[in-house]
Design a protein around this nucleic acid. Sequence first.
DNA 1: TTGTAAGCGTTATCAT
DNA 2: ATGATAACGCTTACAA
Lengths: 370, 370
Amino acid sequence: MSTKHRPATRAKRAQAKQPDAKPAPAKPAGNVGLRQVAKAAGVSTATVSRAINKPEVVSQELRERIASVVERLGWVPDGAARALATRRSGVFGAVFPTLTHGDFARAAHAIQDELLKRGYTLLLACSEYDPKQEFQQARKFVERGVDALILVGQSHHADLAAFLDRQRVPTINTFAYDPTAHGTCVGPDNRKALYRLTKYLIEFGHTDFATIAQSTESNDRALARLEGTKDALAERGYAIRPQHMLFGRWSIDEGRKLCRQLMTTSPRPTAIVCGNPYLTIGAVLEAQEMGLRVPDDVSIVGYDDIEIMAQIAPPITTIRVQSDLVGRFAVAHLIARLEGRDAPVPFECDAEIVVRKSAGPAPRSAARRR
Amino acid sequence: MSTKHRPATRAKRAQAKQPDAKPAPAKPAGNVGLRQVAKAAGVSTATVSRAINKPEVVSQELRERIASVVERLGWVPDGAARALATRRSGVFGAVFPTLTHGDFARAAHAIQDELLKRGYTLLLACSEYDPKQEFQQARKFVERGVDALILVGQSHHADLAAFLDRQRVPTINTFAYDPTAHGTCVGPDNRKALYRLTKYLIEFGHTDFATIAQSTESNDRALARLEGTKDALAERGYAIRPQHMLFGRWSIDEGRKLCRQLMTTSPRPTAIVCGNPYLTIGAVLEAQEMGLRVPDDVSIVGYDDIEIMAQIAPPITTIRVQSDLVGRFAVAHLIARLEGRDAPVPFECDAEIVVRKSAGPAPRSAARRR
DNA sequence: TTGTAAGCGTTATCAT
DNA sequence: ATGATAACGCTTACAA
């Protein structure tokens, strides 16, 4: 018994294969591993490991010998084993609502880029704006051993925060800045952004406002924006008529339909605030197709600045968020946290009004309210 | 000696902590693991493992008991350990040129979705159209232990194929179908697609062609497309004048500039074939700004169908590739391979000409050639 | 159906 | 600076 259980497990395996004979059984392959490299280089596994991870602590001679063996054998370190031993995977997870919206795609790209620079890798998933999916994917990422997690928005599945907390996974919320939760989120202050944009319109003398917002269901950013608009209006004693408060998803076509719907009510709004670039473009195109001049007859503004916004006629006044910066900040912050450094990162990202030609003074005839 | 090395390493650890005393030292935390669950449930670790992975092989009673303990303890299995033991990570890697182009974003989204359904997760990276970066990222993914890899295009870094082969990582090339390499790639036949589109224009009587292609450097898809156009023309004895063969990246603005450049040459082309939707839109907008009518004065066609293509005036004739299908096929194929099944998957994806209004008969005055 | 314990390929802790 | 070897947390023969 005691003999059976005796020493090195490896020795056993080695002796199982008779010296260079036998059909080499079992498993996938006698793949090269750290051990093979060590043997071939005539050093211990520990030294090989060091040569890889802390070259400066290994003598030049061995370092070179090992490097050449690694090269010759084509050894690729095994991430799973390494993760198991270090309790670090070098992988970040990001759960986005979708990838097909320009801002998220840009942010994902930026995050990936930033991670790469620092030797990390990105696991990516899409929640389809569904908190339950978001939770599941975050969970799955934690199982995969992500070192940190990037989410979108402030409001998540009820159990998510507790779960992440319990599992000690550093997390940051993006695309939404809430001063109340400083340090946990990075992005624009959506409410403030639309508050300011709306004021900009108010100063043009508009009083009849409409919104083609993004659906606010499970989308706290959209909600915050809508509230920014309402707040600015309320400050002046204005409000949006119920029939002028419409919601859409993410398509030009929907923007068109909702705009038409809006412009066939009476009284008509003189200013339309849209929730995303596609709704905005749709609204502009449809208004034009209805024979209305933008901005003479109706002002239309959007959210998010994609190239086409500047290129169509008239170029569209909108809000620009540097979503790639949002991503880069998120990464910088998380990595700093992982490394125990303090995160010297701006958390609130600018949401700048890009003034172009789609918004202007309210039409005379509409100034009846005052 | 023999005593020292004797039995279970775990026993040692267990006895190291005196029975429920001492300040519990070291490491991150006495986190819950399989072992804790097993102990709490009064079963062996093997049984817990089975209860998770092959529930049907565990008695109902234990299964339930274990489930409740897992729940209570909030145990999350450790992916690294599992990967190490099974030699499967449950992770796929995808290296795309970029995420900010609609087609790749759609494909990435679809891939992620498809993987999720089957319990896999996606590692994503962007190569910036640089084969060297692509190679590095693929390499990194292999180190991370991906079970399979999704690449874009057929031509990669010289060493990549050999590397992947050596490491036995199932791989598929996407967005390019080459009948020669059937089974290793999935996507549209770019050459054929543009061959057909060009013929469509030829039938309108055009003889003076121009291209605003995507840069073909490290982009075999763009190259194939350009060649499709050339082939169709050559068949009729036509050719593109050097000054009518322009290259751009991915922006409306660049499309505009190149279009203007094209339309100030003499003779002017009567048909412009563009390499991506943004170049196309730019070309159309600029032509219009120059006072040209599309398609009366000049026909303009594009590649890839994004919503705006159908929404501007005139709606643009283009080629539609269902990039989400490309992604789904890729996943289906790889998973089938992993499971040892044969992949019942169509490899060539349709590249359909979406006929709209931006292409029409060649203007009279231009029919001089015949 | 369940338990025992070897093994997955690294890293990290000690010695030396 | 280098080497032995325990440990990382799970799966999987093999045994019972």
